[in-house]
Write a protein that binds this DNA or RNA. Sequence first.
RNA 1: GGCCCCAUGGUCUAGCGGUUAGGACGGCGCCCUCUCACGGCGUAAUCUCGGGUUCAAUUCCCGAUGGGGUCACCA
Length: 527
Amino acid sequence: MTSSVVRTRFAPSPTGFLHIGGVRTALFNWLFARHSGGRYVLRIDDTDQQRNVEAALAPILHGFRWLGLEWDEGPEVGGPFAPYFQSQRTARYQAAVDRLVASGDAYYDYATTEEMEAERKQAEATKAQFQYSRRFLAASAADRARFEGEGRKWVVRLKMPRQGKLVLPDLVRGDVEFDWGREADVVVQRSDGSFIYHLANVVDDYDFGITHVIRAEEHLSNTPRQVFIVQALGYPLPAYAHLPYVAEPGSKRKLSKRKLEAYLKNPDFAQVHQHGTAIAAALGLTTTAETFNPVTVDFYEQVGYLPHAVVNYLVLLGWSLDDKTEFLSREQMVENFSLARVNPAPASFDAIKLGAFQLHYMQALPPAEKLAGVLPFLEKVGWARAPLSPELTAKVARIIQALGDRLKVFGDIVLQASFFFGDEVTFDEKAFTKRVRAAGAVERLIAYRDWLAEQKAFTAETLQAETHEFLTARGWAMGDIVHAVRVAVTGTAIGPGLFDSLEIIGKDLCVRRIDRALRKAAEPPAM
RNA sequence: GGCCCCAUGGUCUAGCGGUUAGGACGGCGCCCUCUCACGGCGUAAUCUCGGGUUCAAUUCCCGAUGGGGUCACCA
């Protein structure tokens, strides 16, 4: 299985969610393989017999595809070393355990959990370093028969060395040293016959010809036992690179998808979450902490981020090209990526900064692509249905143009363009009070309404020019009319340029909406 | 607690002995302006501490402190 070609892997367990930290690790594996002209493998760690592996895996595979992190071998694409599911590879693990036992590097152990726990407590009490006595180690068939006669159950443990040091070369951290004597005789096969991750992991990496194990730092402490298995089995040692983990917003603790509540106390994180939630609400999506969380990539797809913005943000979390490059194309990333430039310190997740990348790439997006990106959202709220008529296409294109940079994510369309669709408009009461009920506003609004109804060329450009004349003729300023008209016509005080809005809405509807606002202004304010 | 890792502004980072410590996000101020965004200009803010080594330490070494990871019949 030795190969001179670089082979990396990412091994998600099918949990149903693609964690942003996991994506960063996967991205670095992907980039390293692409940079080296190697292969990137996706392996599924489903040793825990879960029920709906397929259902739990689908969103993860979908997320990777959305981000453009295609795998060369793995689920759905196959490959020369299939199967890529751990649950289907147990024969390989059994063979490895048998060899380990045969060579004396592992043993059947018959200690009960309680007995093991007692030894651990004992060591703790005397402040001694815990080291299993191995008194239930079965050295022979006779031992096994005896223990089993006592009704004991076996487990297979590694017989770890109790002397010497392991010097582990790490591509990110340099040499890391461990004392073998501090490593426990960990279980590799459970009493039910199933296998522990570390064993499966080593066997799979060997079987798949993985040359570089690039994973998060949390695995560093577990590496000695894996190295022991590698060596006992006579496998070549892969190169290791332990990446810093992605930390919580505003903290250095490891990011976890289970702590949404806590992260929402971070104002920046909360702001991004709230923006997404508003879009989801407009789309009628039911959102839960599990399915709708800025720690999960799903969130960004649902809200309408550009995948490359997410990738560009993530590649810079722990890696940099130089002192000033912020925006990198996929090609630049592949060309320049190196493990040597990975920063060993953890980096906290900053959703606002991700938003800055999103804005940048959105601004650079050609109008046709914006139109395509916005379409699914329009369909979801029922403002449009594919295929769009030429008129609707033109209207949406015009709206996107008018929205300009206000359209930060595709989902913003449903938040910011509602008054361009349908007849009725919902008035923002605060804005209505401030702008329409203001002193003199109604009179000016009536005058403008009558004037507007007479206008022939109803384009933003001419409306703006003509409005100026309208105002100077009366000695009014732009501010005297614009705010009330905006609220009357769009219902809200914020939005695209007023004349763009008037043009898109059209004369008749503008007049009707102003009339409605005037009627509302004539009524007493609702409490 | 043991072991291991880490340490430049609030955040992401550049720096690999001599720099006015650079960039980005965010903040603040001003400008632009029909609102909101965008944009422009400006501005504040960083080398955790203590010892060495050296003519010279943010940079190299040691220690402390702080932060974090990991110690399962989870992955």
